[in-house]
Amino acid sequence: MNYQTYDQWNDEIWADAGFIYKQAFKEKGAKPEDIIRNMFQKGICYLHVGYMGDQIVAMTLTGKLTEMDALLIDYLSVHPDFQNQGLGKKLVNYIHKWSQGKDHFDAIIIEVEAEKTPENIKRIHFWQKCGFTLTDYIHHYIWVPEPYQAMYIQTNSKHAEFSGEELFKHISKFHKASFQKKREKP
C-alpha cells in the first residue's frame, strides 16, 4: 500500500476518501463535509489515504492538538471490500512514522467509545495492538449520548504519561475549533 497525506482540501481525493468515511461513520456522528472543509481552511487537520494502485482503500482524518503537540485520529476507516486484511494497522503505522517527520508531533491520541460492547472492546483491542494506551477517565460529552475514553501513543522518547482528563481538554478544544467557522478578514 502507498500513502499520501494532504493538508489542503481536494475535491477529487475527497470523492473517494469521503465514500469510505461515509460508509463507516454516516450513522456514528460523522462530521458534515462543510465542517471538514472548514477544518482544512483553518489548517487544523490532515487527510491520510492508503492506495492500492490508484484506488483509495483506507483513510484517516487527523487533527492538530497544538497546545500539546499531538495528533488526534478523528476518523479511520478501510473500504468495505478491503477490511480484515491488516490495512488499518498499516495506515496507523504510516501515521505514526509520518507524525515524527515534518511537524513532529509528540503523541497520537484517539478517543474510543467507553461502553463495554463487543464492538467497542474489539476497537480498543485494535488500538492496543497498534501500541496505544487506554486511559481510565470516562468522558461524557453534552452533545452525544455515549461516553468516551482517550488512548494515546507517544512518538518520541520522552515517555510521559497522560491523564484522560488532560487529553479530553485538548480533544474538546479541537472539536470546538472544528465547528467554529473561519473568520473572514475585513
Rank of each mutant, 00 (worst) to 15 (best):
residue 145 P to Q: 14
residue 144 V to G: 07
residue 173 K to T: 05
residue 133 T to A: 13
residue 164 G to K: 11
residue 165 E to F: 00
residue 163 S to G: 10
residue 146 E to Q: 13
residue 156 N to V: 08
residue 162 F to V: 00
residue 160 A to L: 15
residue 145 P to E: 14
residue 140 H to V: 03
residue 164 G to R: 12
residue 171 I to E: 03
residue 140 H to I: 00
residue 146 E to P: 03
residue 149 Q to G: 06
residue 173 K to M: 10
residue 159 H to N: 15
residue 133 T to L: 10
residue 135 T to C: 14
residue 154 Q to E: 13
residue 142 I to L: 13
residue 167 L to H: 00
residue 161 E to R: 07
residue 165 E to P: 04
residue 162 F to N: 12
residue 151 M to V: 01
residue 168 F to E: 01
residue 146 E to H: 02
residue 134 L to T: 08
residue 154 Q to P: 01
residue 153 I to P: 05
residue 164 G to L: 05
residue 150 A to M: 06
residue 165 E to N: 05
residue 134 L to A: 04
residue 174 F to W: 03
residue 156 N to Y: 05
residue 166 E to I: 06
residue 167 L to I: 05
residue 167 L to K: 07
residue 172 S to M: 01
residue 171 I to M: 01
residue 150 A to E: 08
residue 137 Y to S: 04
residue 158 K to A: 11
residue 147 P to R: 06
residue 150 A to L: 15
residue 134 L to P: 01
residue 141 Y to H: 14
residue 151 M to C: 08
residue 139 H to Q: 11
residue 138 I to A: 08
residue 173 K to A: 15
residue 148 Y to M: 13
residue 157 S to H: 13
residue 137 Y to V: 03
residue 138 I to M: 06
residue 151 M to N: 10
residue 150 A to Q: 11
residue 144 V to R: 08
residue 169 K to C: 11
residue 158 K to P: 02
residue 158 K to S: 10
residue 140 H to G: 03
residue 170 H to S: 09
residue 161 E to H: 04
residue 173 K to L: 15
residue 171 I to V: 10
